[in-house]
Amino acid sequence: MTNSIDRQLSLEELEGQRWPEPSPDATGLVRAVHALRARPIGSLTVEELRRLIGQNVGLPYLLPLALEILRDTAPAQADGGFYDDDLLSAVLTVDPATWTRTPQFAQELKSILAALTDLSPYIESDIQAFLQATSE
């Protein structure tokens, strides 16, 4: 799924768009998102991916990376018990229109969810909302 994305490129390069510098009174979140957009996507940590996805930034490029991480960690987490993951929550709560535009990502996420058990009640409600949004 992510093989065609050059992980050495930043979101700015992949999208062909450089955002203007944030204003001096911008929040820390705004400054962080701007800075992360300039970094190669392959160097982003899980927390940085969560932050960008949570802000609906760079989804066509970052969702495949997040899904890859979730797919790789789900089996071990399921075996270990309780699974409460901020990255999973960020992915589950993206704008529902995203799943309409990228049904292959929605299907991948459904496959990952099938491997998870003993989830946080907070994640469970996000899962139900995601499943409802993608059932149409």
Rank of each mutant, 00 (worst) to 15 (best):
M1D: 13
M1T: 11
T2V: 12
N3I: 07
I5V: 09
I5H: 02
D6G: 03
L11P: 00
E12S: 15
E12G: 08
E13A: 15
E13Q: 13
G16E: 05
Q17L: 15
P20I: 05
P22C: 14
T27E: 10
T27F: 05
L29M: 10
V30I: 14
H34E: 08
A35R: 15
A35W: 10
A38H: 13
R39C: 11
S43L: 13
T45E: 14
T45A: 14
T45F: 15
L49G: 10
R50W: 05
R51L: 15
Q55K: 13
V57G: 04
P60A: 03
Y61T: 08
L62A: 07
L63S: 07
L63T: 08
A66G: 12
I69F: 13
R71H: 11
T73N: 08
A74S: 07
A74M: 07
A76V: 06
Q77K: 09
Q77R: 11
D84S: 06
D86P: 04
L87R: 08
L88P: 02
A90R: 00
A90T: 00
V91D: 00
V91L: 00
T98E: 03
W99K: 00
T100R: 03
P103T: 01
Q107G: 10
Q107V: 14
S111A: 14
T117S: 15
T117M: 09
L119T: 12
L119R: 09
L119S: 07
S120C: 04
Y122D: 15
I123E: 05
E124W: 06
S125Y: 10
D126E: 11
Q128N: 13
A129L: 04
F130V: 01
Q132H: 14
A133L: 00
T134A: 02
S135W: 07
S135I: 09
